[in-house]
């Protein structure tokens, strides 16, 4: 039994000639807030896909709580306690916000071969779902259809769904994508609250969030880890500055 909740060993994935994940070794201890940054096309979403089980690894291994889960399907990984949010909002559009979260609860409440009772009146599903909605500040929108929620609310709902599965590890794929400054600030507060009591792997473009929240940061470039360490060390790392931060700063001031 190791102290790591998540470990990857030599994780590799190629798409045609492009190596999207190149020999990635990651180690997340329990309770860590770990951020992965990198320029566009660095393989951040591929990494999330590999960890969540949507993309099959070509080589290497993924260990979760000491057990090999490299070959497990996405739904099995979810039931082991791994949850994810999507970079491009991925919800059940014609269902209410509460229905969306209740489905996530249902997935973890035994099998769904229950054919007769009205699931929308099942308090063992609805109450935890309401609690998860309240956790992201959406309780007032519980009965609103998802396609009528604002983009910011949909991003919050993404998180609520992930939390409702009761995960031990949360994979967040750019939760700030497309948010305005005010919504970003609210999302950042929410992530800060999540931080206590959960292990989180955050993929994010928004540097301010990353450096404000992360215990450790890993930098990916062309599918390869070029640096990994505490935020201050990453900020000072010349290779990182050249590959990523500098470029962004230059763009920001230009």
């Amino acid at each position: 039994m190791t102290g790591w909740l998540l470990q990857t060993e030599h994780l590799t994935k190629r798409f045609g000639g492009v190596t999207a994940a190149d020999d990635i070794n990651l180690e997340l201890p329990r309770g860590e807030f770990h951020a992965v940054i990198g320029p566009n096309g660095a393989g951040k979403s591929t990494l999330i896909g590999l960890l969540a089980g949507e993309i099959a690894a070509e080589a290497g291994a993924i260990r979760f709580d000491g057990n090999d889960m490299t070959r497990l399907r996405a739904d099995r990984r979810s039931r082991l306690g791994l949850a994810r949010s999507f970079q491009i909002t991925s919800l059940f559009a014609e269902f209410s916000a509460l229905d969306n979260v209740a489905l996530a609860v249902q997935a973890h409440a035994g099998h769904s071969f229950r054919f007769w009772k009205d699931a929308r009146r099942d308090r063992t599903l609805r109450e935890p779902a309401r609690a998860a909605l309240a956790g992201v500040g959406l309780e007032a929108r519980a009965d609103t259809r998802v396609d009528r929620l604002s983009h910011g609310e949909q991003r919050q709902l993404e998180i609520a769904i992930a939390i409702a599965t009761g995960p031990r590890l949360l994979l967040l794929d750019e939760p700030m994508a497309g948010l305005g400054p005010e919504e970003s600030a609210r999302m950042q507060d929410m992530l800060r609250r999540l931080k206590s009591g959960m292990t989180i792997l955050l993929v994010e473009h928004d540097m301010e969030t990353v450096f404000a929240l992360a215990d450790r940061v890993t930098v990916l470039v062309y599918g390869r880890v070029i640096a990994s360490g505490e935020p201050a060390a990453i900020r000072a790392d010349p290779a990182v500055r050249e590959a990523y931060l500098g470029e962004q700063e230059a763009r920001g001031h230009g």
Partner: peptide
């Protein structure tokens, strides 16, 4: 059927199968 847990599972799969798998539905 369609309002039971089973029914919500198949309607969820119609709506967004990728998300269904991600939250843990086979």
């Amino acid at each position: 059927l369609v309002n039971s847990r089973f029914g919500l599972a198949i309607q969820g799969a119609r709506s967004n199968e990728r998300r269904m798998r991600a939250v843990g539905f086979p």
